Computed example of a mutant assay.
Amino acid sequence: MILADEEATRRAGALLAAALRPGDVVTLSGPLGAGKTTLARGLLRALGEEGEVPSPSFALVQPYDALTLPVWHADLYRIEHGDELDELGLDEILATGALLVEWPERAPGAWPHALALSLEPLTGDARRLTAIVPSSWEGRWLPSR
């Protein structure tokens, strides 16, 4: 799917929010500046977040517990080893909410059943969004929208 600009990237996040359920993990891959956090912001706004939505690069995990569906937004860019994930307790949210993970390649194999999204910058503000859709997302992920 081609996303023409930042607004289209935010709208893709909002569409994703409508399909999100407790226990879901969505991974967001792509180079710096590809739009991972922009897509996450669109998703979080659609779920009711009205405050600032910073990139969790320095905090590693930003919880949004008061949303209609609680979401934890993680950025693993600074993780050096997959075993560091245990200290973050990311799987705790999955009983009641969902997890968004930027830079999942820092913890390969950690979420084998995640909806894996990848953003690739094109010319200008355009991006290509590709998805690896697990069976648990069939019927919910509609890339044609």
Results as ranks from 00 to 15, higher is better:
L100P: 07
T130L: 10
E92M: 00
D83T: 11
A40Y: 11
E87M: 08
W141T: 08
V71P: 05
P143T: 06
R127V: 03
K36Y: 06
E120G: 01
E138W: 08
L67H: 12
G35S: 09
S136L: 04
D91W: 01
R145K: 02
A12M: 10
G89N: 13
L142Y: 07
L43G: 08
P121L: 02
S135Q: 15
V61T: 04
A34M: 08
G109N: 02
L122A: 04
E120I: 07
V133T: 14
P104F: 11
G82C: 03
D83P: 02
L129I: 11
G13W: 07
H73S: 13
L60H: 00
G124P: 01
P104M: 10
S55N: 13
S57F: 11
P31E: 15
P70H: 06
D83I: 08
I2Y: 02
L117F: 06
L32F: 09
V71C: 12
A19I: 05
A131E: 15
V53A: 14
R127A: 04
G97Q: 05
W111D: 02
S118G: 05
H73N: 13
L39Q: 12
I132E: 15
P104R: 09
R145N: 11
D83R: 14
A116Y: 04
G51W: 10
P104T: 12
P108T: 09
P134K: 06
A98Y: 03
L16V: 04
R21I: 09
G139C: 04
D125T: 06
